[in-house]
């Protein structure tokens, strides 16, 4: 009886869980009983679980992950440090906004990943080239979200601070920053996805370590269970990070209930 009540209450959760379990079970059963396929081209959950245990729990992948995270953090850090002030400048000084907006829009809309081979040829195979790639991809969401955030700051609040004799610094710290913060966090979520693309492309293209390299190496050597283990590890991390950002967003801006784009 209790189970039934719980089902009615958390219907979405149970249905979701059920469908995931069903897919995993069907995958396993199909490959075990119906057509046991060539292990070089396909694999099944039980084998992936074994590989996951080996690679993740006993550690082989963590070294690769550490290498990737380092490059990611450098690029992402610089994107924050440069992107937010630039966006704030564009939002606050009208002429700066006019001047920089078309150029950055063009850069944001174009697939900068196309420059990856050149960046790697110029800067070599290593931390620096990957960080540059991550930076180039993830700086624009910070710029544009800060820009939009500053521009949508309530004029009234600004006037209030001014009438009470607040200076430029008060404006920034007490009005503009708090009202822009939710925009920045939303930008960070978009930047996160783009930064991950940068890391993966950089490491697929030319690298000797890192999670992207691990995936392409396992693929080249037909070690599918290990490859899926690495993919799942990356998936878990990506979901945790994006959902974390989403939570942060709803904490910082509870009035923004739905997001137009994910």
């Amino acid at each position: 009886m209790k189970l039934k009540e719980s089902f009615a209450e958390h219907r979405r959760l149970w249905l979701g869980l059920g469908s995931v379990l069903f897919v995993i079970a069907a995958w396993e059963a199909l490959l075990t009983y119906v057509f046991p396929v060539n292990p070089f081209f396909f694999t099944k959950p039980s084998l992936i679980a074994v590989a996951f245990k080996e690679q993740v729990i006993y550690g082989a992948l963590w070294g690769d992950l550490a290498v990737s995270s380092k490059a990611f953090l450098w690029g992402f850090g610089f994107a924050i440090v440069l992107g937010i002030p630039l966006g704030a400048l564009m939002g606050w000084r009208r002429k700066a906004g006019y001047t920089l907006d078309p150029f950055f829009t063009a850069m944001y809309a174009s697939p900068l990943v196309a420059l990856a081979p050149l960046i790697i040829v110029v800067f070599g195979v290593g931390l620096f080239a990957k960080s540059v790639l991550v930076f180039a991809l993830s700086v624009f969401p910070f710029i544009f979200n800060t820009f939009a955030g500053v521009r949508s700051t309530d004029r009234l609040l600004i006037n209030v601070v001014r009438s009470f004799g607040g200076g430029e610094k008060d404006l920034y710290l007490k009005v503009i920053f708090p009202s822009t913060l939710p925009f920045i966090v939303a930008g960070a979520r978009i930047a996160l996805g783009r930064g991950l693309v940068g890391i993966i492309v950089g490491e697929f293209y030319a690298a000797s370590e890192g999670i992207g390299y691990a995936i392409s190496r396992f693929g080249d050597t037909y070690r599918l269970p290990e490859m899926f283990a690495a993919i799942f590890l990356l998936m878990i991390l990506a979901v945790a990070l994006t959902e974390g950002m989403r939570k942060l967003e709803s904490v910082l801006a509870p009035w923004k209930t739905t997001q137009e784009t994910r």
Binding site: V197, G219, L234
Partner: peptide, 25 residues
């Protein structure tokens, strides 16, 4: 409710990580 977990997971992950797999297949 049944499709949502898959959409959330795949949307959060950069789908480019499947490239080596697709080249293999």
């Amino acid at each position: 409710a049944m499709v949502d977990p898959f959409v959330t997971i795949f949307n959060a992950t950069p789908r480019l990580i499947f490239l080596p797999l697709f080249i293999l297949w």
